[in-house]
């Protein structure tokens, strides 16, 4: 498992003009070079590769060999890293979770009639409250007494849940994300919300101390949660709570069963859209 990831990379885009029967073959071969994502176009194919993985000479040599077998032409363009989410970010509407918590960007007017207000400038990190999973995590947090608690936000994205925990009175808040941009964004948002005591780490659970934490928040994805369950159990205090989301309802039983086999006990589950959030207790 990789210990860190970087999203904001420069990319090379290779534009191929190639006839239909050969397009899929070229795509398959390119995936080994290693181009990682493709866009089908009427003329053929655009193939994308991060700059650090790009050995332009080796790729050119390989392509000219393949050109003998399947006729195609290509051109290369450079795409500098940038915040691709900027358009959405500049237009998004503030969100209010019940009468509990409002989330807005710094350019919005303050939300009215909410207990807690968070200001999040998300850039390319996940977590603004618009998504069902974040929304349910915040609803579930409302039912926990976080005053004085030690809290870990695992897969913190924008840091939104860590910031809410800090505002709810947690005495210690740690946040960790495998993506460099998310860790950086969490630090930025923590400052913006006057919760600078949140400690942000970059990496996997190994990057964080051993705990114990009274509450662990894990809005990630099914596979990462399943892999992490033994470590999460070890890091949860007795008694303590693990709050899981980022899983589809179709995966809820699998995640619940495996968490229970670790020793957790399911006390609550929520559903919104296709998504599930599960509250697990450790006694």
């Amino acid at each position: 498992m990789r210990k860190d990831k970087k999203i904001a990379l420069n990319y090379y885009q290779y534009n191929f003009v190639i006839a239909e029967p050969y397009r899929d073959i070229l795509l398959a071969m390119l995936s080994e070079l290693p181009f990682d994502t493709f866009e089908e176009t009427p003329e053929g194919l655009h193939a994308f590769i991060p700059e650090p993985d790009t050995d332009q000479e080796a790729i050119a040599a390989q392509l000219s060999e393949w050109q003998q077998q399947w006729p195609f032409q290509y051109a290369v363009t450079f795409i500098p890293a940038q915040n691709w989410n900027a358009v959405w970010e500049s237009n998004f509407q503030p969100i209010v979770v019940d009468d509990f918590c409002g989330v807005r960007a710094d350019f919005h007017e303050p939300s009215q009639g909410v207990e807690y207000e968070l200001v999040i400038n998300p850039k390319m990190a996940f977590g603004t409250g618009h998504h069902e999973t974040t929304y349910m995590m915040m609803q579930a947090m409302r039912n926990l007494s976080l005053a004085g608690a030690r809290v870990l936000d695992y897969g913190c994205g924008t840091g939104i849940l860590a910031i809410l925990a800090a505002k709810m009175g947690a005495s210690l808040v740690d946040a960790v994300d495998i993506e460099e941009e998310s860790a950086a964004n969490s630090i930025e948002n923590a400052r913006l919300n006057q919760t600078p005591d949140i400690r942000v780490f970059h990496g996997t659970l190994d990057a964080v101390g051993p705990g114990p934490y009274d509450v662990i928040l894990a809005n990630i994805n099914r596979n990462v949660i399943l892999e992490s369950l033994p470590a999460l159990y070890a890091m949860t205090a007795s008694p303590g709570v693990l709050l899981i989301s980022g899983v589809l309802q179709t995966d809820e039983d699998l995640v619940t069963t495996q968490a229970e086999s670790q020793g957790f006990r399911k006390t609550e589950s929520r559903h919104r859209g296709a998504w599930a959030a599960v509250v697990m207790d450790k006694s």
Binding site: I7, Y11, Q13, T37, F38, F48, P50, I79, W84
Partner: peptide, 8 residues
Amino acid sequence: NPAPPIGP
């Protein structure tokens, strides 16, 4: 992830 081509 939000890199090219998904991002743009």
